[in-house]
């Protein structure tokens, strides 16, 4: 589907409600220190955000939990989700940790309560938008020609970014 086309898809707000994950307006659920790293063009707005990590901290304290979901939308009402994980990129060993978090997130998206989030994720994939974003601060030691960078690509995760723009 072409980006921007209107279709009957769930809203981010509705998806968060069904999944019982508290939604905050704009980038509110994202820790203040990471908000500046998330940029949008004038056509795209952040409709809301969820903090998955906090939401599941008590229930799944030992799981490798993904951090944030970011609801993005266009003026015509089309919405999709981008999953953002602030995480160190200080060594290639961090890649396995990111992929473990992605496993956790994908398992969640298979649950019935997360069906709307899964639909919004699919929408992001169809839009050819960034779906899973690894944000980092400090050093980045994940070389683009490393085995680990290829492992990330095969799971649909772009190389770690200091900033992401939608």
């Amino acid at each position: 589907m072409k980006r921007g086309a209107v279709q009957a898809s769930p809203t981010f707000k509705e998806a968060a409600r069904k999944a019982c994950v508290p939604m905050t307006a704009g980038k509110g659920a994202v820790k203040a220190q990471y908000r500046a790293a998330i940029l949008t063009s004038k056509n795209v707005r952040v409709v809301g955000s969820v903090d998955m990590d906090t939401a599941y901290c008590a229930a799944e304290p030992n799981s490798a939990r993904w951090d944030y979901g970011l609801g993005l939308g266009l003026g015509n009402g089309a919405e999709w989700v981008c999953w953002v994980e602030p995480h160190p990129a200080s060594s290639t060993s961090q890649v396995a940790k990111i992929l473990a978090k992605l496993d956790w997130l994908e398992a969640k998206l298979l649950q019935p309560a997360f069906a709307d989030f899964a639909q919004l994720t699919r929408q992001a994939k169809l839009n050819q938008s960034l779906v899973y974003v690894w944000l980092y601060e400090g050093a980045n030691r994940i070389s683009a020609n490393s085995r680990e960078a290829r492992a990330l690509a095969l799971r649909g995760v772009a190389l770690p970014k200091r900033q992401v723009s939608f």
Binding site: R122, K125, L126, Q128, A144, A149, L154, G156, A158, L159
Partner: peptide, 13 residues
Amino acid sequence: GDVIAKVVNRFEA
């Protein structure tokens, strides 16, 4: 890497 990530996501959707 970027293009493969995009194609993987498109294929899954």
